[in-house]
Design a binder for these strands. Sequence first.
DNA 1: ACCTGAACACCGTTCAAGT
DNA 2: ACCTGAACACCGTTCAAGT
Lengths: 160, 160
Amino acid sequence: MALSQQAIIDTSLRILSRFGMGDLSMRRLARELDVQPSALYWHVKNKQDLFVLLARQMLATAVAEAEGTAAAEAEGTAAADLAWALRTVLLRYRDGAEIYALGLALEGEALIPAAIRHSGGETLMDYIVGALIIEQHRSDFDRQDPDAGARFERGVAQLL
Amino acid sequence: MALSQQAIIDTSLRILSRFGMGDLSMRRLARELDVQPSALYWHVKNKQDLFVLLARQMLATAVAEAEGTAAAEAEGTAAADLAWALRTVLLRYRDGAEIYALGLALEGEALIPAAIRHSGGETLMDYIVGALIIEQHRSDFDRQDPDAGARFERGVAQLL
DNA sequence: ACCTGAACACCGTTCAAGT
DNA sequence: ACCTGAACACCGTTCAAGT
């Protein structure tokens, strides 16, 4: 396939889910896509810009997946559903939460889903990101906590 | 001064407060300490280990500073005071919150101050780290939010 | 015990030059 | 428009060897 922004995003996410941020280098990305490192810079401004693109993609999938589960539910639970969907997606990619946090700082409100913005606001978003960064780091070091999911749900509920 | 673990920690914190994590490299640290990079590895196992040492140091200063302000106060407010002290210290060093999150995942409970563990628990700790990571990233990109402090206090109160 | 010197296998980014 | 090739200024870590 010809090189494109989407191809770069897809390959990034594949590297991320298998190996994590430490292995997501522009050079490795280029190797995997069979181009020279410099070729990437035609499609992406720099590595930071790539992170923003990845965060946007993760949000899009989370929103899509939340729409699936929340179809029959009341409006009030929309934020909780989205928080859970975000958790599912961010944990799918190693260091996904870290990347999301970077994106959040760079892009701001564009990365706070509407349902969350209207209910828990930035406080809830801060909690979601914090909880997931720590949970994810912990599992990177083989120290994962079996009831992290339950605690996450309680935390979200408390902030709604 | 002779090279020592403490000297490495001090220099790291100085680099951090002025330039941030991107500039905190083992090689730069060595340059600033007038030794070869390899010399550092006698005093510190690796870079990850250094991060844990930095997180411990930041916690220690936060606890010390909280003791100053909280002397005359009721016991219930201890957790809120510590959260605020932690905010002050972590924001003092660029990417301090990020490093703290890494330490938290590696060291676990040792980095959750007693007052916070007993009141808000890990949920509160997750929020603190998340809120500070985002606030700090934002100010790295010159997008700081003037009422981040007030929002932080409300978030902490909500979780207590 | 503590440090140097040299090496290994990497990085992100830029830019002229090619097609 | 899109990519290569080469270069610049970096990384973390290991390990024999020196003192």
